[in-house]
Design a protein around this nucleic acid. Structure first.
Ligand SMILES: [Mn+2]
Ligand SMILES: [Mn+2]
Ligand SMILES: [Mn+2]
Ligand SMILES: [Mn+2]
Lengths: 142, 142
DNA sequence: GTACAAATTTAACCGAGGCTAAGTTAATGG
DNA sequence: CCATTAACTTAGCCTCGGTTAAATTTGTAC
């Protein structure tokens, strides 16, 4: 019994789980970034940055709010909750590490930025440690 | 004008495009693998390997068929088209390279296998070349 | 040849993440 | 103060990738 799934099946489950949290991670990261740059973040900023419609942003933000990552005031700016700020910090750190790593092995700036946007969500803590170790060994820690 | 999208927006578009082709890639890769191991591939094999229901497989296979990657006979095995076989080959090669690369920088077998399943879909040709170059330089080409 | 088990298909549903169109609110210039 | 514009919301639609339940086909054991 327990042979209804193959032994490698958990890897695909992992990938599906990564994708379920991906949008949340990108949003809190972006909100923090825009807040840092412009003082406040509006829905229209996110729509422009992600190249989606403002309606998509409205719906996604409603989910983020329900899940406790952001707070909103009607017709006002978006703000991260304490929990949202903590998540943004770890997500940003991971993003930076992946980006620095790709550049360290010779990937061009622009390609590295683009690939990182997808890769970051599938890098496990162990792999992230390996990336950091590589950067350290090559004296390119940031 | 043309300032309705930010300069970094194309990266998120890229990631969304990667995700749109991801299932197709995983399916053709898996079908080729199962064919190679057991002579033929059935829908139930895919359901077991991906840990999804057989209904999900039926629906996904219908799309793959519509797009010309696989052929089916009612209540019979799945087969790849010529186009499907070619895609499977390139997808498998990319998977192998990503996996070998992660192991080369010190990621454990199991973690490398899991991370690769997601990362492979976001690795651009340029980054793949960097991975291969790294493996070559470290005499670990496969 | 019949009964049963496994595989497959079909129908009906869900949530996430996209979209357009239309209505509402807020800010601002004259 | 009012008209315009920008931002935001609401309503309704789509596809994809999941689900369960029920019907059908196929292969096989007896
Ligand atoms: Mn991202
Ligand atoms: Mn992905
Ligand atoms: Mn994969
Ligand atoms: Mn793969």
């Amino acid at each position: 019994m327990a042979k209804d799934t193959a032994q490698g099946a958990h890897r695909f489950r992992r990938t599906r789980r990564d994708h379920a949290t991906e949008i949340t991670h990108d949003y809190v990261e972006m909100i923090a970034k825009i807040e840092a740059m412009h003082g406040e973040c509006r829905g229209s900023d996110l729509a422009r940055q992600f190249a989606v419609s403002h309606v998509t942003v409205t719906k996604t933000v409603a989910r983020l709010k329900k899940d406790g990552w952001v707070q909103t005031v009607p017709y006002g700016p978006l703000t991260l909750t304490a929990k949202g700020k903590r998540l943004a910090k770890t997500v940003r750190a991971r993003h930076e590490t992946v980006l620095a790593f790709l550049k360290a092995i010779g990937v061009s700036e622009e390609t590295a930025e683009a690939d990182t946007e997808g890769i970051e969500h599938h890098v496990s803590p162990e792999t992230l440690r390996c990336f950091r170790r590589f950067l350290k060994q090559n004296k390119l820690s940031n």
